[in-house]
Design a binder for these strands. Structure first.
Lengths: 237, 237
DNA sequence: AAGTGGTCTAGACCACGTG
DNA sequence: ACGTGGTCTAGACCACTTG
């Protein structure tokens, strides 16, 4: 087969079998012991091979049960557009979604945040961490930094949190406009991966967006990490 | 420290040291043997820890030399906009860029391609694989599927390839317009990783775009995989 | 109890870079 | 020759699921 790299041979073999249709969605792959025998090697190498399939999202391993071919992900399209909030975007598609406010604090801005929000140094901001779910499964983790002047006593409205933009609209009559988004692919940190219920080293889409008031004043920086098997970002021109 | 998971403790320790500034860009991390002694463990566990730092792009390992803290990546912004070709986007920034045509063929379209390009089944398309460089380093790998009717005898112009859009403009007077892009984060395949000179399991941004003629006729599907440490996709509204 | 995946141990051997 | 990272071997022990 290829190069040397036994573990890659094994993962390519399994990948090939999956794509040929010899293993279908939900099927159990050969057990690690079986693969050890098939390739005349040991646990570690086989695990390294399966690890790669897990990282690529093709396989999920369940302790005590086995490793299984994942269903082809059917990520929900999320349209990046100027007037896009999370709930708004999904409501129109009839997707079962939910947001949970993990924590929040009021603090003074970092230099970088002050620059992006056009604030003076050490200006007061709200800092919210929000975990969003689709069909009850965690899909996206985001961190919003909001100019506190524009949403006075925001904290009063956080107790029964459902949607950030709903609060903006309802209590402050603010309809944020997305101005810019920057997109990268990253491996989430340890804590983030846990919250997103992702195995180690599975990548996510990282987006930093700047939203402004209708008038133009910078309102909010959002940094989100999103599972690519749950969301598909779409930009239309 | 945390949870159990010794290898995560080690990678978090190193990450912490890097972020505290105890190791700067280009500094050599303790050798694997040293880390084994520091954490009273062995090669494999230490390697698993370092593997994670490599996947996150914070560290690069060089055989025979050591593992080193990478320079904070300063990815070139790439603006996703309707009138965006690769060269055009970078020329304006004075970035040293280059494209290499890896291979091409003329073939009949897949059902999915036919649908997206609004072609009849088994319509003829060009299929190009292009590797793009920034400062001489591979940054993005893309696969273009082009409606062959709109660029007759395209192959005549591929011998001295510099830029696809330059060929469109110069020989066909076509000025493609980007209509839609879909964005995900993936782990590249074995071959793709090699071409991008990425270690195993480092994620890339995957984008599928549809470009049309000025008139509106679908022209080209592009599927690209891009290193996040080289490019930063930006969408402006 | 037996089978499965998950982590770790201990060590061999190789390829590469430096002195 | 030696230290470094890279791959693989062989096995222990654990946690979990199933019969």
């Amino acid at each position: 087969m290829g190069d040397d790299q036994l573990h890659l041979d094994i993962s390519e073999y399994l990948l090939h079998e999956i794509e040929e249709g010899n293993y279908h969605t939900g099927d159990k792959l050969p057990s690690e012991n079986t693969l050890c025998q098939m390739f005349h090697t040991n646990h570690s190498v086989v695990r390294q091979a399966i690890k790669r399939l897990i990282d690529t999202g093709r396989v999920v391993s369940l302790q005590g049960k086995g490793s299984f071919v994942t269903s082809k992900p059917d990520p929900v399209p999320y349209v990046l557009s100027p007037d896009t909030g999370f709930s708004h975007n999904l409501k129109s598609q009839g997707v079962d979604h939910m947001s949970r406010l993990l924590k929040w604090k009021k603090r003074s801005s970092s230099p970088e945040e002050a620059l992006k929000l056009q604030l003076s140094q050490d200006h007061c901001v709200y800092d919210l961490c929000i975990l969003r779910f689709i069909d009850g499964r965690p899909a996206s983790l985001s961190n919003s930094i909001i100019n506190a002047d524009l949403v006075p006593r925001l904290s009063d409205y956080l107790s029964d949190f459902h949607s950030l933009y709903q609060i903006f609209n309802h209590y402050f009559h603010i309809y944020p406009v997305r101005r810019q988004s920057t997109i990268q692919a990253i491996i989430p940190g340890k804590e983030e991966a846990k919250l997103l219920q992702l195995p180690e080293n599975v990548p996510v889409v990282w987006i930093e967006s700047l939203a402004c008031q209708t008038g133009g004043a910078p309102l909010e920086i959002t940094r989100s990490q999103t599972r690519s098997d749950m969301y598909r970002y779409v930009v239309k021109f």
